[in-house]
Amino acid sequence: MTINEIQDEIIEDFELFDDWEGKYEYIIDLGKKLPELAEEHKQDENIIKGCQSVVWLHAYEEGGKVFYEADSQAIIVKGLVSMLTKVLSGQPAEEIMKADLYFIDKVGLASHLAQTRSNGLVAMLKQMKNYALAFTSKEATTK
């Protein structure tokens, strides 16, 4: 599935919820289901510090695709992290770099990516794209 196909699927999922409770139950559930990041990846270099909670992001490249594993101390952030990795993990680096993540706005979670939430998600998204960029430039130099 492409990035946009996954986004559209998430948007469809969210259309089932007619109130905030259903929506947050779903996000919390995603957070609970996201496997904990292995301790070896919870190093300082993988930490993205928000003002309130920490996000860990580990990335690796395989066959021209970038894979992400992430975690957070706060469960709602973890649920959001789970959605971001679902959309971007396993995609070609070039696609990740130019991805427009419109689903965040469409499902009514834009405020979580606003600066005021200070939860590290904005920084995480930036870092995900940075990794993609790093992997493409590495590829370019090895070719």
């Binding site: 947050y24 919390i28 309130q52 909670s53 101390q73 709602i76």
Partner: peptide, 8 residues
């Protein structure tokens, strides 16, 4: 986590 309390 406190942040989850605040959001909810």
């Amino acid at each position: 986590h406190p942040q989850d309390i605040g959001v909810l």
